[in-house]
Structures are given as structure tokens and as C-alpha cells.
Amino acid sequence: MASYSTNEFKGGLKVMLDGDPCSIVENEFVKPGKGQAFNRVKLRNLKTGRVWERTFRSGESLEAADVMDRDMEYLYNDGEFYHFMEPDTFEQHQASADAVGDAAKWLKEQDTCTVTLYNGAPLAVTPPNHVILEITDTDPGLRGDTAQGGNKPATLSTGAVVKVPLFLEIGETIKVDTRTGEYLGRAKED
């Protein structure tokens, strides 16, 4: 496997650190005018999601991690594993609940997700930035209250709970930003 030197570190680069695959978040070159050069690097552990900071001597290198992001279609959950399919090869991958993590609450069958593969196996799943989901439970809507700012919790078909405006009803479909959990609007496709 290739390795990367500190001067090649940049956001998104996948490297091995302490035996775990990591994604570089930030790389800051630190050098006192008359002192030694270091690189202060923020990394996200792709297994745990934890971000931490480590200092390297400039010129040190890290082994590349065999990690790649693939767009895959979410198929179904069999109770234990989440199944995804590569759209061009139809190759299927099963991801554990650990790998799927918080993304689980946004997964809708046939949506395209980004699956991060580590040594060929799913390590993490990133849902689409925007998903369209049906409201399965919420308090009754308040008619005519389309201008007021108030909101209420609504449970969606995938189990996620988001805040929605008071006028929305069970059965309506809405668009949500999965990065923030924010309600974006009623889905237009209905």
C-alpha cells in the first residue's frame, strides 16, 4: 500500500493510524521561525467517528488506508444487517448496525447512499443529504396556521423524529436535510 508524507496530507485523505482507518480533517503546518517543523493534524477515526488531533514531525508519513466511498442503493434490513447494492455491478454488501450507525434513521429503500468500504467491507454509511419521507405520526394539524413560526415533532416512516410546522398531517411526505435533521419543505412529487 502507498504511503503519504505530511506535506501530502489534506482533507479527505484516508490513512492508517494506530491500526485504524482514518480520514484527515485538517492539516496545519506549524513551525516556529527558528524551530523545528511539525504538522498538527486533525483526523477522524472512521470506525468510531471520533475526531482527534495528533502532531507529526514534518516529513513523517502514514500508510494509506484501503478505504473508498461508493454510491450504492439501499435495499432492505433483514433484522440484523443492512443490505446495499452497487448500481452498475449489482454486487451486494451487508453492513452491520455499527457501520450504519445514526444513518439508519434516514435509510429508505431504493435511496442512493454513500457506503465507505474498508478492505472491501462496509465501514460507514452516509445517507443522501436530502431525503423524502412520509410522516407516520404527529399531533393533529392546525388548519390555517401556515404563517406562524411554531412547530411540533413528527415521526417519519424510517423512525426519525424531526420538527415540522404545525399544519402538517400524518400521511404527508416531506423533505429533510439529513446532516442537520432540519425540515426543508413539503415534498413536491405528491
Partner: peptide, 21 residues
């Protein structure tokens, strides 16, 4: 105070690290 990928080689490296970080 710092998470280092190496063991500092000498006094000046320790001082540089503490100063800059």
C-alpha cells in the same frame, strides 16, 4: 499536553512543541 506520533528527541524539540502547540 500533546498527542505526538513520535518521542521528542531532545530538549529543544520539547520546548518547540510546547511553545508552538
Amino acid at each position: 499536553h500533546l498527542d505526538l506520533s513520535f518521542t521528542p528527541a531532545d530538549r529543544d524539540e520539547c520546548l518547540d512543541l510546547l511553545m508552538s502547540h
